[in-house]
Design a protein around this nucleic acid. Structure first.
Length: 1036
RNA sequence: GGGCGUAUAGCUCAGCUGGCUAGAGCACCUCGCUUACACCGAGGGGGUCGCGGGUUCGAGUCCCUCUACGCCCACCA
């Protein structure tokens, strides 16, 4: 082993080994209780940042701990298509001002390409943190299975009357060219100018003079004596766009104290004005278009952007003498959280999820609302939020929840599955199940040869086909399609006979043409070729991926009504799944292994949504809007587990256990998952929400590009190692609070990791030649008993802490146990002699204890000591070696050794100088004395009745009783100083104790045991004071 | 405007249901390259726990007021 731990030499290789082992894949058939965390999917376009790193560290620790305590763990990975964010990034990348500058198909192709590359980057970055994710179950919020789920939810909500289309006031992001939800609006205080404008005989004030072109109502408070009598009257006044007629309207909304107490309203461009207009039945005048430019009603400003129009309108009004006063005015401006542009409130037709409309819950039969279901989760205690205070935040959000606008005018998102006919009637997409099945075994299959296309089914293969037919008979199949190859066709014949259904041969469902390889024995090389993404040899042959994608498209578009079964091949099923998961493949073979059919006759159910146009002659027009990205994210805990189809994953792993994420997306995401999860399945999708805080710099300041205080987790991992980065993100912070982090802190934990490495190195040196099988956990010597006891305490603390999601406490306990107890005292004691078999045994337990927090170093060290293994598969330590006697005896030794060290430091006596010491008044013999001698660097420790008279020497009163005499030349002045200091401290202590006991209320009311303890302490302090005083007196 | 949080050593923070002399890491000072580790070891200095009240035998810990900072929600032109 090297002198220092070089993380770079081990981490990547170790992760690759975990992946290759297949152990990261959760087993749905396991008997063990499940523990499931859905990973908050990072945006495909993003880079790993410290927020992700914190999330990965926390979740990985929980996953590993649960795995080690008897759970079948599943940590579901994936990425998010991040609709608006991604669309913007791609648009900028392509240099498009507006997305319409490129045809939709082309834009989507570019976006997919970009997302695919970005996906691989972020996935690899996640692996750097050591995350024990089940990559075989990776999914993507924009893949085909998610699309099917999204459509299923949409349909269900629609049928329950919970999705409506409505013409309402919405937030328009001019830059994104889309509406955004209320929650997606960010507010920023800006100082702008408040203009006071003459309007007929009145003065009104506004920060948006450009909108004062086509108003028709002047609103005043109905109680305002200045204006009360004018309500109902009409007058004409000049605006910058010409003369207009105004009505005077009375509405409570107006604050008489503000400005002149009167204002004119922009009914179509302000939520409050809109509300007033609705109350008074006023017309809605569109002044700003969706392009962010003024409409024709703006006269001289028509066609200008809002900001340009503002300048121009003010100039015009100044000219006209309409501007009475200008003042600077700080107020909040709504901004788009994705593009940062100013939000324009607009009236528009959009789709909404209505949250307060009663419906019948199909799981309980009760009448309820989405709002109710969402609130009940936390109110009823079925979902617990950590830290608890966020429950209040959650409630206040729910209580004020309004309808959720889910339509977006961007391209990069799930299409809203609605089609309109000429009469404006609404048609839904058609959900279809496709059973993609594998043929029975052929003779070539049996011989493990590459297929020659023409070998018949074996007897076993025919039996498999019969079984398959039985299975399909349960599924109400109305159409049967088969690949043209013989083994498939023969299977189809058997199925066809059973179902009484004709079959159609579709060439596209054949597997790839393998040319000259036909009939060859299968080899590894051949497999690799078989699964290659791009095929280069034989330029006429399409790549596998292209071919299957084509077949998939054929299926999706030409299928007719009813359920379809397609008899095809294993590779086809694999490829279809890959494509459905939108995973351009980094390692096709690995994915094929995870997703390929296991056996002949297996059935894979796929959901697809078809256009209703397939079923009608009437021309239909597809809705062009897409869905809010959070609409699909809300399905994250259900869809990747198999909803709506169900299946063994869903049965075993739903609901999940913990949802861990940043508190900033509690509303956006967590609340919506709770809402949809409960609505769709009748169960809340997880029982615990763990919210971590914002990762900030070492000074507690928010990291930002402009401040330049950002830290790149990958750089930190490269420099200090993933284990150190994990610890620094997890120790010393509390859920929900900021997580301060800086290179110094990470460096500190790197030192800890190195300490552990060196402990192992030491153990290795001491145990060379000892067989692992000889290792024992049964302590014998005092030091062994002591450390066993301390380990037991630490282990229980860590276990309790992790069970209660107190990761920081677990980390802190580990840090101090390993460093301050195990290394500083036990390994030092071991230098006095310890049984290698115990050293070896306990070291292993320490590695297991630390493993959930530091997977890399612990597994690496385990390999060094005992040979390659997977610690996550081992049991979390459960020693029961608590030993009060050993702890008391060892504490005495520690006190003695510390006293000697203090004297040494005071007098400048180096550790190499052996000191003769005498001890009286306390029992410290045998093992204890030996330990004291070794740890204190003593020549000999003599235990005596009365201390010998020396002409020089330092006497120290030990905390555990007893007096230690150290034979060492000393400086009388220094000794006086030391003793005076000690006396002062003792006096202070005595004062406190006496004061407490002097209070009769204390002795009466405090628990008797505590009072007795205080008395004992006072006695001890008094005794010590007497001795120290005597010593001090001797010195004069 | 409403709500929440935080104020503990020079810095960043622990301190669970109130109970021994308030802790850690980093920084600082002194000493030491003692054969696991200088990414180390030994010792040390440093805090009236934001202010003021209250409850209690006892408060950093519970309650109230105030002050400062931070966050979330609302959004009167």
């Amino acid at each position: 082993m090297e002198k220092a731990y070089e993380h770079g030499r081990f981490e990547d290789g170790l992760y690759a080994r975990w992946e290759a082992s297949g152990k990261m894949r959760a087993n749905a058939q396991s008997e063990k209780p499940p523990f499931v965390i859905p990973l908050p999917p990072p945006n495909v376009t993003g880079q790993l940042h410290l927020g992700h790193a914190a999330m990965l560290a926390i979740e990985d620790i929980l996953i590993r701990f649960k795995a080690m305590t008897g759970h079948e763990v599943l940590w579901l990975p994936g990425t998010d298509h991040a609709a608006i964010a991604t669309e913007n990034v791609v648009r900028k990348k392509l240099g498009l001002q507006k997305r319409d500058e490129m045809p939709k198909e082309e834009f989507m192709r570019e976006a997919r390409k970009f997302a695919a590359g970005s996906h691989d980057t972020i996935v690899n970055q996640m692996k750097k943190m050591g995350a024990w994710l089940d990559w075989s179950r990776e999914s993507y919020t924009f893949d085909a299975d998610r699309n099917f789920a999204v459509n299923a939810v949409f349909r269900q909500l629609y049928d329950d009357g919970l999705i409506e289309r409505g013409y309402r006031m919405i937030n328009w992001s001019v830059d994104a060219q889309s509406v955004i939800a209320d929650d997606e609006v960010e507010w920023e205080e800006r100082t702008e100018t408040l203009y006071h404008i003459q309007c007929g005989e009145f003065v009104i004030s506004t920060v948006r003079p450009e909108t004062k072109c086509a108003d028709s109502a002047m609103v005043v408070n109905p109680e305002d004596p200045r204006y009360k009598h004018l309500i109902g009257q009409k007058f004409t006044a000049m605006t910058y766009a010409g003369e207009r007629e105004f009505h005077v309207i009375g509405d409570e909304h107006i604050d008489p104290e503000f400005g002149s107490g009167a204002m004119t309203i922009s009914t179509a461009h302000d939520a409050n004005d809109y509300a007033i207009a609705k109350r008074h039945d006023l017309p809605f005048v569109t002044k700003i278009g969706f392009d962010g430019r003024m409409t024709d009603v703006a006269g001289p400003c028509a066609g200008m952007t809002v900001m340009a129009a503002r300048e121009k309108s003010v100039a015009v009004m100044r000219e006209m003498g309409l501007i009475v006063k200008e003042e600077t005015y700080p107020h909040n401006v709504p901004l788009c959280y994705r593009t940062g542009c100013v939000i324009e409130p607009m009236l528009s037709d959009q789709w909404f999820v209505v949250v307060e409309k009663p419906f019948t819950d199909r799981h309980t039969g009760e009448t309820t609302t989405l709002k109710q279901l969402t609130a009940d989760a936390v109110r009823g205690g079925e979902v617990r939020i950590i830290p608890e205070r966020f429950e209040k935040t959650y409630f206040s959000w729910i209580d004020n929840l309004l309808d959720w606008c889910i339509s977006r005018q961007i391209w990069w998102g799930h299409s809203i599955p609605i089609w309109y006919d000429a009469q404006g009637g609404v048609h839904h997409g058609v959900a279809k199940e496709i059973c993609l099945v594998r043929h029975g075994e052929s003779e070539d299959n049996a011989a493990n040869r590459v297929q020659r296309d023409d070998t018949p089914l074996t007897a076993a293969g025919r039996a498999q086909a019969e079984a398959l037919a039985e299975e399909l008979a349960q599924k109400n199949i109305t159409k049967l399609v088969t690949s043209p190859l013989r083994r498939a066709v023969e299977t189809a014949e058997i199925v066809s006979a059973k179902l009484g259904l004709e079959y159609t041969v579709v060439d596209d469902w054949a597997t790839i043409d393998l040319g000259g390889l036909k009939g060859e024995a299968r080899t590894e090389d051949l497999s690799a070729l078989f699964y290659a993404e791009e095929r280069t040899e034989g330029e006429t042959v399409e790549s596998f991926r292209q071919r299957i994608a084509g077949a998939y498209a054929v299926l999706k578009q030409t299928a007719t009504a009813g359920n379809i079964a397609v008899i095809a091949h294993r590779s086809v099923a694999t490829m279809v799944q890959l494509i459905r998961r939108d995973r351009p493949n980094s390692d096709m073979k690995a994915v094929a292994r995870d997703h390929g059919f296991g056996a002949y006759g297996d059935v894979l159910e796929l959901g697809v949504i078809q256009s209703p146009q397939l079923y009608t002659e009437e021309p239909l027009r597809a809705e062009e809007d897409t869905l809010d990205t959070w609409f699909s994210s809300a399905l994250w805990p259900v869809s990747p587990l198999g909803w709506p189809q169900g299946g063994e994953d869903f049965a075993k792993f739903y609901p999940a256990d913990v949802l861990e994420t940043g508190h900033d997306i509690l509303f956006f995401w967590v609340a919506r998952m709770i809402m949809f999860g409960r609505y769709l399945t009748g169960e809340y999708p997880f029982h615990t929400v763990y919210l971590h805080g914002l990762v900030c710099d070492a000074k507690g300041k928010k990291m930002s590009k402009s401040k330049g205080n950002g830290i790149d987790p990958l750089e930190m991992i490269a420099q200090y190692g993933a284990d150190a980065v994990r610890l620094s993100l997890v120790v010393g912070s509390t859920p929900g609070n900021n997580i301060p982090i800086g290179p110094e802190k990470i460096g500190g934990y790197r030192n800890f990791v190195n300490k552990l490495w060196n402990a192992v190195r030491f153990v290795q040196m001491k145990t060379e030649g000892v067989a692992m099988t000889a290792a024992t956990l049964q302590p014998e010597s005092l030091a062994e008993r002591w450390v066993g006891s301390r380990f037991t305490v630490a282990q229980e603390r860590v276990r309790t802490a992790l069970q209660g999601y107190e990761i920081s406490r677990a980390g802190d306990t580990i840090y101090h146990f390993v460093w301050d107890e195990y290394c500083a005292w036990f390994l030092e004691s071991a230098k006095a002699g310890v049984r290698p078999v115990y050293l070896l045994g306990l070291m292993g337990e320490v590695l297991k204890l630390v493993h959930p927090l530091c997977p890399f170093i612990t597994e690496t060290c385990w390999g060094e000591l005992y040979g390659e293994a997977c610690l996550l598969e081992m049991d979390f330590p459960k020693l029961t070696l608590k030993d009060e006697v050993a702890e008391a005896e060892f504490a005495l030794v520690q006190g003695l050794v510390t006293a000697v060290r203090q004297v040494r430091a005071n007098l400048g006596v180096g550790p190499r100088e052996k000191l003769e010491t005498y001890l009286s008044g306390v029992n410290c013999s045998g093992e204890m004395a030996t330990l004291a001698e070794v740890l204190g660097g003593l020549g000999q420790l003599t235990v005596v009745e009365t201390l010998p008279e020396l002409d020089h020497g330092v006497r120290v009163e030990l905390d555990h009783g007893g007096t230690l005499l150290i034979d060492v030349p000393y400086d009388a002045d220094a000794e006086r100083e030391r003793l005076d200091k000690e006396l002062a401290q003792l006096d202070k202590q005595r004062g406190g104790l006496e004061g407490r006991l002097a209070n009769p209320k204390y002795t009466e009311k405090a628990p008797p045991a505590l009072v007795q303890q205080t008395r004992d302490q006072l006695t001890a302090v008094n005794e010590k004071i007497t001795k120290v005083r005597a010593q001090r007196a001797e010195l004069g």
